[in-house]
Every structure is written in structure tokens, then in C-alpha cells.
């Protein structure tokens, strides 16, 4: 089976909310989170999706 979509990274400001297999980046505030997300999006060729203001994920489509 080919996995078509996968979560490449999780970026969060609230580490209580996340855990699991993908790399997790913990940031201090929303600004830092945005910078991380923008960089990771460019590096990983994925899309930064917002699940909430505290949790962003990078997904490869």
C-alpha cells in the first residue's frame, strides 16, 4: 500500500496537546511557531496546516 499523505512534523506551543511518532517542535509563542512552520514547509516541501492556534502540522500531499 502506498501512503499518500503523512504528517512530517508537528509544531506546537503547548506540549501537553501533542505526542506520537512525528518529530515535534516546541515553540515559546505564536510568532516562533509561525517561523518554524514557514521554514519547515519550505524544507520539507509540505503544506503547513493549522489545527488550532497552538498546533500546526506539516503534511506531505
Amino acid at each position: 500500500m502506498v501512503i499518500e499523505k503523512s504528517v512530517l512534523a508537528i509544531i506546537t506551543t503547548n506540549k501537553e496537546k501533542v505526542s506520537g511518532g512525528a518529530p515535534i517542535f516546541i515553540c515559546h509563542d505564536f510568532d516562533e511557531l509561525q517561523k518554524y512552520a514557514a521554514n519547515l514547509e519550505a524544507i520539507l516541501d509540505g503544506i503547513a496546516h493549522a489545527l488550532s492556534d497552538e498546533v500546526f502540522i506539516i503534511v506531505k500531499h
Partner: peptide, 9 residues
């Protein structure tokens, strides 16, 4: 259409 997280995007 889709979910776009980053405000600059």
C-alpha cells in the same frame, strides 16, 4: 478548498 496554516501564505 483547503487548510492553509501560515498567515503569510
Amino acid at each position: 478548498i483547503m487548510n492553509i496554516g501560515l498567515p503569510e501564505r
